[in-house]
Design a protein around this nucleic acid. Structure first.
Lengths: 154, 154
DNA sequence: GACGAATAGGTGAGTTGTCAACAATTTCGT
DNA sequence: ACGAAATTGTTGACAACTCACCTATTCGTC
């Protein structure tokens, strides 16, 4: 015999639906902007951003973790970016299985060129819509959800 | 001569990074769950959910708007879902260009089967991490950002 | 009522993402 | 020190998404 499902109450439903819509629209618009004004994909952008923020050199899985991607996605992405000359793979002396991903000079040049405009769009579409208080609440919410998920099974 | 870019301040940066990470991780996990426990894709799920919530019959672009997708994405999606027997296209008597998308009985059966488990995961991974107050703030934030984006150019 | 612009939607080619299986280490228990 | 299990990363086949362009209709206006 089946349980009757515990649906979300109206406030929960509204929060969830709103979040999903907002996220879909915002990410979609920003991705298209990055693509059209920098000629690189949003994926290229975030990978390069995290990589260069971290000093231009990271272990493969550390990089994957920073952007919350699965390793297979990252592996394909790195392959593509390597072909485009944005990053390179190097192998890790300490661990024979490991790999470092390093940003090439062209990679640095590419985010440095793309970043100002991208930040402008983030500000225009997102930051400007919110008060500082709302922003800090959102930061808190995000971290809570992230922490919570780490403790949960898949 | 170029402006020096207006970077985000540390709080804005933290809010933005946190949001992106949270969203990536949460959506990723939920998508995989839907896929593995219902044998349909997350895209199938949300399209069917919105469509059946709306009475099982919507104009093509209305549906696309509800989920904040571009028409091309939705068109391909509908084609795939049609092949899977989840929805059907019907043409619109009032407007010769138009199309209605309707959920088939198999479509209804599919979300009805998938929904309880999905809701459980949404609750477990997301809702449970937050207080009611945080949830309502998030709803407010999402709507603010959505409204704000409507007024902005691409 | 005809003609240009806007709207609704579809399509194909190329890019990106997913899943499952795999190889090559490294780690750990005994 | 030896084998089992875990970790690190890759690959191939396939599914989904994007971009640019295309068709058919409707709308507006003269």
């Amino acid at each position: 015999m089946k349980e009757t499902p515990r649906w979300l109450d109206p406030e929960q439903q509204a929060a969830w639906d709103g979040f999903i819509r907002m996220q879909e629209k915002l990410i979609g618009r920003l991705s298209r902007r990055v693509q059209t004004d920098s000629k690189m994909s949003a994926a290229d952008y975030i990978v390069l951003a995290k990589l260069t923020e971290a000093g231009g050199r990271l272990r493969f899985l550390e990089l994957a973790n920073l952007v919350e991607w699965e390793k297979s996605r990252m592996s394909h992405q790195v392959t593509r970016m390597t072909k485009r000359g944005l990053v390179a793979r190097e192998d890790c002396p300490d661990d024979g299985r490991g790999a470092f991903i390093v940003a090439t000079p062209a990679g640095y040049a590419a985010i440095e060129a793309a970043a100002p405009l991208h930040v402008e769009h983030v500000r225009r579409l997102f930051i400007d819509a919110l008060t500082p208080k709302e922003l800090s609440t959102l930061a808190q919410i995000s971290n809570r959800v992230l922490d919570h998920m780490e403790k949960q099974p898949d």
